[in-house]
Write a protein that binds this DNA or RNA. Structure first.
Lengths: 349, 349
DNA sequence: TCAGACTTTCAAATCGTTTTAAATTCGGTT
DNA sequence: AACCGAATTTAAAACGATTTGAAAGTCTGA
């Protein structure tokens, strides 16, 4: 493996100049730069990352700790993020080190990995309100970037979508179609994104002068089955007039809801409108549902690049930056005007 | 972060002596070792791995490339291996770098990762016959360890179980119980382990003077559904007399088979015996099936430690070692004597 | 007492890069 | 001819560990 010294020897230059030439420093003679480039190319030079890391004090590795849940429902999500993150980090000359969280203490794996003293920072996901990991890492001064955020305003690096806006957008679309009774089938309530979605939903409904009984707002793991079960229950009419529209946590949940609607002998969107949020997972395409699903869309994959950039920049000393984007609203065939008889709102409780 | 120099300064020793003392070199005064240890402890010394790596020329990182399949059926397996490997490698001061294979070319991700010049070696899994990855890595002289093996005799480092023996053991148990018509519901035929299991199965049956029509030996992804579907078909009697026993690729497949047996109005093990191979995945416990499943057992988790050891040793210069172990045979409630009418073997084709 | 052997410690080199501070070259002025 | 400043380049230090070769110091036995 060629080194700076060898390239220098070949040209009668010092390693220092070669280093500068290759790193694009302005004070190097243009002619020299070309010659150095040529020789480096010919010798197949690759900088020794270990040596670079020794001198810069950074390790070039960031950690991702995955929590293995009993339900394993997060698999698709996990693989999608893993794929995107390794690619995006690789472009920044950074490697992803994985560890598995098998403990009860959410902070322990982070502590363990830091003790091994090889990581520059972490990528966190699935934030919960008052996330203990944030407190721990901030206290220790360890850089990290969060996918999502624990609260509307935070002071750490994060990237995500505006989850309150996600459900607010959905509500506005549905109310503009005349819907008054809109149900929410949300994700697990322990996660911050669910809290945000619920908040956005409630506020938007309130702004429209509408209210939603508790029975029509549920929280559960984002599976097809849960979508089906909850929707079936809500459409039974036991808790009051049935919803004419559903806002769902994910495409998968929406699929379950649509199945329930059909099993009740109703049609989408004739009798009931259904919306989902689309993370654009390759195996669960919103447009492939029948009818094609109207969604707020924010591909999970799109988050990987910004997450990698934000973290690497932060590790290199840049201030923690928050980037919250707005999910796209894509109207397809699963939403339509409220049906006859859908004009009656639920009574405010 | 404390360094060797700082510890040395504290004690009036040179970094060299401190290094030796901490690394247990014999030529250091016992008294000195104790004092060094004490100070190192007090200052919370951790060796700078990057510096270590620079001087030893090794990076201390090995790669695992995961292939994302459309069926995603390997999830549980993947998480189990990931958990075990990170732990086992961590004990050897080695980190696991993950990459995702999204390409058609099975070799490309290995080449890419080597070009980044940060890895000491690889852990490979899911070997196929004449695995192109093996050819590539051997040609480049890159150390690796294979979980399993591409053929009965290989010259690269590997750890796994004797898969031919797995089905041979199953066959011998079942024939000793009087079974003559034994079906095989195997894993996907493209994998070497399936090839080995089939070979062991065929040989053992042959040794007993029994033959199996092709219709009673299937290969498919290891899911509950596939087990169910294939068993249901085999029990329909369209292809000749039904099997009285099933040898299944996994616990999950066996669960499907048992469901099919029951749906056919038969009982396990009264009418039909069922065996599986148990990787001891936490969510799919063979003993929790009803009836408890007789299995050959080789916990996936147990492979992680040897794999880590073999690879790290190999990276450090040890010769490639092959370790093939025998799976344990655990007889539970799903196997019993062949039923009346089970004495007739299939006709040799 | 002193050579020789053994034990223990140290200075310095090394790994390959980045970076600081200093040196060199060169053309242009005065 | 001497000097200045800009443009390039270099020497050397630094990062923190390991390792080589040598140098102390200690002990043994004659």
């Amino acid at each position: 493996m060629a080194t700076l010294k060898e390239i220098g020897a070949e040209l009668g230059l010092s390693p220092a100049t070669v280093s500068r030439a290759l790193n694009g420093f302005p004070e190097v003679n243009k002619n020299t730069v070309d010659r150095v480039r040529e020789v480096a190319e010919r010798l197949g030079y690759r900088p020794n990352r270990v040596a670079q890391r020794l001198v810069t004090g950074r390790s070039g590795m960031v950690g991702l700790i995955i929590k293995i849940r009993a339900d394993m429902s997060a698999d698709q999500t996990f693989f999608e993020m893993l794929t995107g993150l390794t690619a995006a980090l690789g472009a920044q000359d950074t490697d992803l080190v994985l560890a598995v969280d098998q403990d009860d203490d959410p902070v322990l794996p982070y502590r363990k990995l830091m003790e091994r003293d090889i990581l520059d920072g972490f990528i966190l996901n699935a934030p919960v309100p008052d996330d203990p990991r944030v407190a721990f890492l901030q206290e220790k001064g360890i850089p990290f970037v969060m996918h999502g955020q624990t609260a509307p305003d935070v002071d750490y690096a994060c990237f995500g979508i505006d989850n309150a806006a996600v459900s607010a957008d959905a509500v506005r679309l549905l109310t503009s179609l005349g819907h008054k009774r809109i149900a929410l089938i949300n994700g697990q309530s322990r996660y911050a994104f669910s809290v945000d979605r619920l908040r956005g939903f409630s506020k938007a409904m309130e702004a429209e002068g509408l209210s939603v009984p508790a029975a029509f707002m549920t929280s559960d793991a984002e599976t097809e089955t849960h979508g089906y079960t909850h929707a079936l229950e809500m459409l039974a009419g036991r808790d009051g007039p049935s919803p004419t529209a559903f806002v769902c946590a994910s495409t998968l949940v929406a699929a379950g809801v649509m199945r329930a609607v059909k099993d009740r002998g109703l049609s989408v969107p004739g009798d009931v409108s259904v919306m989902g949020h689309d993370d654009a997972l390759p195996l669960t395409q919103a447009r492939d549902l029948e009818p094609a699903l109207t969604v707020t869309r924010a591909p999970l994959r799109d988050a990987c690049q910004p997450l990698a950039e934000l973290l690497v920049a932060h590790v290199k000393g840049a201030p923690a930056e928050q980037r919250i984007e707005r999910a796209e609203l894509i109207v397809r065939a699963s939403t339509g005007p409220a049906p006859k008889g859908g004009e009656t709102p639920w009574l405010s409780t």
